[in-house]
Design a binder for these strands. Structure first.
Lengths: 376, 376
DNA sequence: TTGAAAGCGGTACCAC
DNA sequence: GTGGTACCGCTTTCAA
């Protein structure tokens, strides 16, 4: 009597419950119930369930079977409580670009807060991509943590570290961009190929006058950046688009370089109808457009979403933004790592998120959501 | 010594750790540590932390303070273990339209599986909207569950039930559409106003030739449906669009009615340039377009995503689909309810998701994702 | 090869 | 008002 605070349904009520599973009154089976049913002790049950040594094959088989037919599900709360071995994961991400990596960290923090038990998350941030990342990540060698989340921006330098970590049994999850060919546990990123393709489609379908489009990117040796160009090209040919990609300028995520390149580009291309900025470095490009007086005549599609873009999208100076959903990336990266560590569930090898297409009509919703919550 | 399976970092290593918080060696503080520090017993600590009666104000204050300065965080695993009062929530959703409500249920199931502890989810499905929903939901009166997720399709009939549940202390979360004016815990839905606005923007920016657009909806007395029309109109005027909304046809989610209405519409409007189907009932509209031979000449935007649409989008017969993200809706609804039940955290009153804009360029990614995972 | 028992950190009940 | 203690279900150690 004392355990059921809920009054048990009357027979009448029970009859009405079309889909109510008739669990009768049997309490939820635990390892104790299995032991009793199989006529052994709970220690033996544990050995059987976890394939531990020191048990006869026959005993194990019998226990496994009764567990099965009792529909045993381990009580995770109890397990986590017992195994309070306070696991710890490290998150190595750059400070810059903050508009992307800050919400990515928030996504991880938020997810971690939900799952609380036994997992301490430690954020270790280095100044920017290509500056201090190796030093930051290397430290895992010293503090043997249980898992790592990182952004493998410069593949050649980070891949060996990923391999080393994996060799030590420390799973690594890549975010923001992938490190293919390494044995990372999984990767979570906005799919760059699709990003490029979307922009090509938008220009083709929504900007009928446009013939010449240029891309301003960061560095084509970065996987993410070159994939966007590849996706753009692929979609143009898929659609038999009237548009041609006339230039791809590399600005190396630098404000002044992007500004200069944009000015040069505009001078060279009087017929330019569109620009796709495929990194977060869009403000200097817009400044260049404004300074040259061509801001209204050229359609601009940018990447990521930050406060300065809001009025630009509202006024139509920027036609669309591709939002790479850093909060969601953080959440998914954490969940994948968490489930692997706690339950041994191996996630699928790659998670490609569709980027959100932000237009004037849906802009407000993104602003509302990105502030507090996990962005939907 | 015996608890730390991790070797403690060498002094050298420690010096390198720029951001390592110096927790020294103090074990994570539990209620026992608080008791010791405050010079009371754990029972008293519990009373203080939970504002339970039977404790002197001074004692409570002191305990709260030491808990604060020790940085106490309750161990949820332990709490859940103790409170194994197997809570139960009920999910009342229609079977139709399966392409939307099946993944919504999957989203709930998936989220529930992640959070396991102490929460049994019971799905109770009724045939379709407006058919058996009241009877299904009413049953909560008999089995006093701890929380309810439902889709309040017909407001007038369901609102009283929501109020009744809330009055009994059973929190209700609305999905798919909102029930404003009731005291539901929260609602999770794709924002219909924004959906309409997006479509208006797409048509406006699209082929500049389009002048006349029609909407095929379900029933304007449904909040979701009328909001989409309102959003569409609002965006048209916002953009000074050249487009006019020439007709709004109500097909009441019926295949044959939608087909007939489409045929009539096409006959009446030789100059029609676009159709927005604002419910999942898009297949009969497309059939009508095909039968009349105008499938290529009229731009079509549809709602939701299901297998039959895939080839249509690929071939360009359908220009865009607004995907209302049922998996995400299910996940968010569950999480809101879960955190309220388990931790007393009240979610913000309304969650408006931005719908995904599905085009030819990003279609494949949605197909990949929707299959297994939580859709990103 | 197996059984018995000691906890993990809270909560809820008893007795004082 | 307060302190003590028996649990929750699982893992792990030690003894048989």
């Amino acid at each position: 009597m004392k355990r059921s605070r809920r009054r048990s349904p009357t027979p009448e009520a029970r009859a009405v419950l079309s889909s109510a599973p008739d669990k009768s009154d049997s309490k939820i089976p635990g390892i104790k119930e299995i032991a009793q049913a199989a006529g052994v002790s709970i220690g033996t049950v544990d050995r059987a369930l976890h394939s531990r040594p020191g048990i006869r094959a026959a005993t194990r088989a019998k226990i496994l079977q009764t567990a099965e037919q009792l529909g045993y599900r381990p009580n995770l709360a109890a397990r986590y409580l017992k195994l309070s071995q306070q696991r710890r994961i490290e998150v190595h991400l750059p400070q810059e670009i903050a508009s992307f990596f800050d919400p990515l960290r928030d996504g991880i923090r938020h997810a971690a807060a939900q799952f609380q038990p036994n997992l301490e998350v430690e954020f270790r941030s280095y100044p920017r991509i290509g500056q201090g990342e190796v030093e930051s990540i290397q430290t895992f060698l010293e503090h043997d943590c249980d898992g790592i989340i990182l952004a493998p921006s410069s593949l050649s330098k980070i891949s060996p570290l990923i391999r080393k970590a994996t060799a030590r049994g420390i799973p690594v999850v890549c975010v923001a961009t992938d490190a293919p060919g390494t044995d990372r546990l999984t990767s979570v990123s906005s799919d760059p190929f699709t990003s490029g393709a979307i922009v090509a489609e938008l220009f083709t379908q929504l900007r009928k006058g446009v013939r010449e489009v240029a891309i301003v990117t960061g560095d084509l040796s970065t996987f993410d950046h070159s994939e966007k160009v590849r996706g753009f090209r692929a979609m143009l040919s898929d659609l038999n688009s009237a548009i041609s990609l006339v230039e791809v300028a590399e600005a190396h995520d630098d404000y002044r370089e992007a500004y200069r390149q944009t000015c040069d580009l505009l001078a060279r291309r009087p017929g330019l109808g569109g620009i796709y900025v495929s990194t977060a470095n869009s403000l200097p490009v817009i400044k260049g457009l404004e300074d040259s007086g061509r801001i209204g005549t050229i359609s601009v599609v940018v990447t990521d979403l930050f406060p300065e873009l809001v009025p630009l999208i509202h006024t139509g100076k920027v036609f669309a933004a591709l939002y790479q959903r850093p909060l969601t990336q953080g959440r998914m990266a954490f969940e994948a790592l968490y489930h692997f560590l706690m339950e041994g569930i191996r996630p699928r090898p790659v998670h490609k998120l569709p980027p959100h297409i932000v237009l004037r009509s849906n802009l407000d919703l993104f602003i509302e959501n990105s502030v507090v919550e996990l962005e939907g």
